[in-house]
Amino acid sequence: MPSLIDIRRRIRSVKNTQQITKAMKMVSAAKLRRAQDRVIAARPYAAMLRKVLADVAGAVAALDQPVENPLLAQREERRTLLVLITGDKGLAGAFNTNLIKGAQRFAAERAGATVTFELIGRKGRDFFRKRGAAIAGDHIGLAAKVAYADTAAIAHQAMDLFRNDEIDAVYLLYNEFKSVMAQRLTITRVLPVAMPEQSAPADFIFAQPPAEMLGRLLPRYVEMEFYRALLESAAAEHAARMTAMDSATSNAAEMIEKLTLYMNRVRQASITKEIIEVVSGAAAGE
């Protein structure tokens, strides 16, 4: 039977752990709120961009000659770039595991084609680097403060690869923030660009030729897809960590309760034993 001191020591250690998990939960909750605000703040621009692109697409479709744009080129998908957005840190439940599993499944489904990885986040990078996967590039420390310029730079690398005919398609794999309790593994194809539904062609005056405008709008659209994915992922990561740390905190509380009960039982047993010893000693002395 463990001694009282041993049990006390264990209780203290569990309490310390609980304090850490509780603090981490609180930090994640605060960060989550900020991340959520940023997701919401990015929405108006994304919505407007989609509408403008739809209008330009409508106007371009009404033109006599078809408009070619390298970002719209449909090719057979033999070389795919998978942009995987994981977290930089662990302790977020199944957040990173699900992503990595999803990426492996994605690669396995395309057994005949080559899949190259662009890895955003330390967890994904470490995993695929160890396994010697084909990696186009990696980016660490972005999720802590998602900046549009950084994201745009990554999007441009992917667009250059696509334009130079080095890859045939680009996919984004990330966790979408659904609610605080749930993240949804999302995979979207960003290149070639799937144009939004064309709106009814209004009689627009074009200050610049429509094809030229389309050429400038499309990269912005791709950048925005990357940016939105990163923001979603950051919010989802904080939510996942908050949930994980919440359950860790309540698990610790449960454990403390159990240990305390056990400790009291041990203490009582030892007191009973001592009483018996005293009584039987006295009885023997009579």
Binding site: A41, A42, Y45, A46, Y148, E223
Partner: peptide, 12 residues
Amino acid sequence: LEVATPERQLVH
């Protein structure tokens, strides 16, 4: 009038 940047909406 709606004015927005990728990071936020400024005017609506």
